[in-house]
Each structure stands twice: as structure tokens, then as C-alpha cells.
Design a binder for these strands. Structure first.
Lengths: 111, 111
DNA sequence: ATTATTTGACGTAATTATACGTCAAATAAA
DNA sequence: TTTATTTGACGTATAATTACGTCAAATAAT
């Protein structure tokens, strides 16, 4: 790659793409599902649940944290992870807004 | 990477992740927006519109075609691209279903 | 018939993502 | 105090993505 070109697109598209990309791995979707299913969740719970090592799970958590989709409450040596309701809501709205703005063509050339 | 682990997750999660991943690049979102805005669209139109070379645009089109999100009608030497309404609808439903299934926790530990 | 368009296949370089092990620091338990 | 847990930082190897140029084949235009 000579140069990354993502920054040449509309900011809105970049933001949307970042969110979608973060949802673009089954491990991260599984993490979100697990966090939605429980109140208390530390990393060990996740790496027990997922077929991945602790370090890899940590990496996926980092990606989700960077977008603010999840947050971690430090409790001593442990960190209790949970979803960020506000960001999840924004993410949901953004997805629906974007997908609704895309309506398929109805011309005869598109069978 | 010793081995890809994606296939160890639920098929449903894998499918959802594949769709989200495909939406995870601003160029592909821009392509979808453009296709939604016009009836007739050949690749030259897209590479004029986007800040990317024709070959790169072609690569993104390929990714979208592989998931069935768009389709191309061959018209002589040209290919008229358009959205696949059915798949777009499925994608929309899947997104909403998945995101709705994730509701943030309400415990006191999650402020 | 010759020239111009348009596309997809192929190859390639650079970047990013994925997966994991090891280690040190911090806290908890013994 | 010593030992065990838990986490995040760091490094590393492999795979995938992104971006582009070149080329041949097919069709359209001259």
C-alpha cells in the first residue's frame, strides 16, 4: 500500500466504517453477546468462554474499548467489563440510518 | 497467526461478522451510496467518483459482489452495477436483529 | 481493419489484523 | 511474607487487506 486513503472519504463514512469494521470479527460479536448476558464479567470469563487465548481476547477488548462500545470498571486487580449503553445506542442508530439511506434501485436494468 | 480461528464461532456470528466487515471500509460504503443514487453505473463512474484507482475500486466491488450485496449486469463490454435489494434487506434485518439482541447491562457496577 | 474502451486476472508492495507467549506490576489470598 | 491471580505492555509470526500497475480478452467505435 503506497498510502492509506481512508481519510479522503467523508468523515461520516469513515466513522460508520470504523464501527462496522469493529463488528467485523466473530470474536468481538461474541464478546458483545456475552457482556449483554451478564452483569459481572472479567477477562478470564471471556477467555474461558471463547476459543481464544487471554492475550487475543484482550486485544479484541482493546478494539471495542477504543471505540467506546465497552468499558471496564477497575475493581482491585480485576476489571469488570460491560457494554456502554450510550455508544451501543448511537451505533444502533447509525447503522439503521445508514442502511435506510441505501435503497436498491428499481430500474429495469436491475433484475 | 498460527491458525485462523473464526470458524470456531457460531455460524450466525460468522455470517454477521462477514457482513459487518464488508461494510468496514469507507470506499465500500461510498460505493453503496453511489449505487443507491443512480440507475446506471459502470466502474468508470465509480473510479471517477472515488479517490481510488480503477483496480482498487474493482477489488472493493469484488468484495461486495462476493457477499451478494451488489450485482453486475453485463451489457456488451460494460457492466452495469446495482444494489441487490433482497440482500440489502437481509443485511438490514440482520443488523437490527443483532444490535437489538445486545442490550446494555443495568447493574450498578456499570455506571 | 484498426483503434479505443472496458473489464477481470494476475502480480506485488506496504500496511493492518489476528493470534499467541512472555514478562512485570498490582492486588488478593495463604 | 510468600504465593497466587489478574491485568496490560511488549514482541513476534502469520495471514489478510489495501492500493496500484500491467496485461490480455472482449466489445464498441472509427
Amino acid at each position: 500500500m503506497v498510502k492509506a486513503k481512508k481519510e479522503l472519504f467523508d468523515q461520516e463514512l469513515q466513522d460508520a466504517a470504523r464501527f462496522f469494521k469493529c463488528l467485523g470479527h466473530p470474536a468481538r460479536l461474541a464478546i458483545l453477546q456475552y457482556l449483554a448476558s451478564t452483569d459481572t464479567c472479567i477477562m478470564g470469563d471471556l477467555s474461558d468462554e471463547l476459543p481464544l487465548s487471554r492475550t487475543t481476547v484482550n486485544q479484541h477488548l482493546k478494539a471495542l474499548k477504543e471505540l467506546g462500545i465497552i468499558k471496564g470498571e477497575v475493581e482491585g486487580v480485576r476489571v469488570n467489563y460491560c457494554l456502554n449503553g450510550d455508544v451501543m445506542e448511537r451505533l444502533k442508530k447509525m447503522s439503521i440510518h445508514f442502511l435506510d439511506s441505501i435503497h436498491s434501485c428499481s430500474s429495469t436494468s436491475c433484475s
